[in-house]
Design a protein around this nucleic acid. Structure first.
Length: 410
DNA sequence: TCTGGGGTCCTTTTCCTT
DNA sequence: TCTGAAGGAAAAGGACCC
């Protein structure tokens, strides 16, 4: 047997974070190049889709649809929010998470496109295949982001990872026409920050020695995991930059933020992160939720709510069956008209993916919640998942709720 | 004038058992 | 039977991310 030559020194970890540039908007502009440079807003619910159907029903190839056929934001009524907006639209002050009605006032001439997750997922699969062909250790972080372990990939150490990053960027662009930004660093935490340094089409290389110069001046918010709440709390203690965070003793952070969070904050500020790049993972829960067109009342709108509730249960059951899972913990989520949210869940003895069972247990959860106030959202969730042995029914009939169940609670 | 949907993870509370 | 401590699991809520 040939001797395995152990390297004198283990290779330094080189972890890349890749982030597609304005992913949804870029995909839409590939389909509709005539929208290049115009304010375009992507988002909204069914209403936006209805508008688009008239556009696509014209029979023209997508790139020949005249601008006049696209629905405008002007006069929009309804609850949707913006998922993303092109730079031309952002210039008017509209951006992600803003209500569409507010956006319509700020930029009525913007074109409104519906979100087309199926199309984004297709592009997502394509760019990820290109990456794994080059560097197989890839961690999926959603539709437009991944981590890649460069450490043992050919070219992964050259120029700190820049050579391989350039190859991946070019391969993705050649195959899809999409651009991305990549950060390469000793770990995921720093790689994620680095990928934001130069956007779009950027490559940023960070080494351990760069921590003080490149990372410490940044706002705490730039650490992935510090959101608005944690940021506000840090600010109350006079901590605004990562450097200021690093200056606090570990014990002090533990004392004020708890054992786990305090220790994590300290490690993050010092650029320490040992998390591996995880190539496979199992889902923890599967859920469906919907915000109603108008707020609904449990008594007044009983039939409508019952139908929505049943439909959510059936969709969760279908998702479970399609993906090959069963779950033991069944839960509901609802949001009142004042935006307060409550959840209830219940664990049953046997895992299930049966719509009627989910409907029954979710119904029990619902009985434990006050229903005097109007509701704006209802959701159904199944957790405690286990993989399904390949013998269960997966046909649609197995996931239907018996008629008549709707009226039971609402 | 509000504020989507689908997730994960963490903390705190509650409940049950020993 | 009551009381209390301790530990674990389940439940609830919330922060965060894409």
């Amino acid at each position: 047997m040939a001797a395995v030559t152990a390297p004198d020194k283990p290779l330094p970890r080189r972890i890349a974070h890749l982030d597609m540039d304005a992913f949804y908007a870029s995909v839409e502009l590939l389909r509709y190049p005539q929208l290049q440079g115009l304010p375009v807003v992507i988002g909204g619910g069914r209403r936006a889709c209805d508008n688009m159907l008239t556009t696509e029903g014209s029979g023209l190839p997508l790139h020949e649809i005249p601008l006049s056929a696209f629905p405008l934001l002007k006069g929009y009524t309804g609850r949707g929010v913006i998922t993303t907006a092109t730079y031309a639209a952002r210039a008017f002050g509209v951006g992600s998470a803003m209500g569409l009605m507010k956006a319509a006032r700020l930029c009525p001439q913007a074109i409104l496109l519906p979100v087309d997750f199926d199309e984004y997922r297709r592009y997502s699969r394509r760019f990820k295949e290109i990456i794994t062909d080059i560097a197989p250790l890839m961690e999926d972080r959603g539709v437009d982001e991944v981590y890649i372990d460069f450490t043992h990939v050919s070219g992964g150490q050259r120029e700190g990872g820049r050579v391989l990053a350039r190859l991946i960027q070019k391969s993705i662009f050649d195959a899809t026409g999409l651009t991305c930004s990549i950060g390469v660093a000793p770990n995921k935490l720093l790689a994620k920050m680095a990928s934001e340094f130069q956007k779009p089409k950027g490559i940023s290389i960070v080494h351990e020695a760069d921590l003080q110069a490149l990372v410490w001046p940044l706002a705490c918010r730039k650490i992935n995991g510090i959101g608005p709440k944690a940021d506000e709390k840090l600010a109350r203690h006079g901590i605004h930059t990562i450097g200021e965070l690093a200056a606090r003793p570990r014990d002090w952070l533990v004392q004020h933020f708890g054992k786990a969070t305090g220790a994590w904050l300290h490690d993050a500020a010092w650029g320490r992160d040992e998390r591996p790049v995880v190539t496979e993972s199992e889902p923890v829960s599967i859920s469906r939720e919907t915000t109603f067109e108008r707020d609904l009342h449990a008594v007044h709108d009983r039939a409508e709510l019952g139908a929505i509730f049943t439909s959510l249960c059936e969709r969760v059951a279908q998702d479970l069956q399609r993906k090959g899972y069963m779950g033991r913990t069944i839960g509901i989520k609802l949001r009142y008209d004042d935006f307060r949210a409550v959840t209830r869940d219940q664990t049953v003895a046997e895992p299930t993916h049966d719509a009627a069972t989910i409907r029954r247990v979710a119904g029990l959860c619902l009985k434990r919640v006050p229903l005097q106030q109007r509701l704006r959202l209802l959701g159904v969730r199944v957790g405690g998942l286990s993989r399904l042995q390949q013998e269960g029914r997966t046909d649609a009939a197995a996931s239907a709720v018996a008629p008549g169940m709707n009226a039971e609670l609402f």
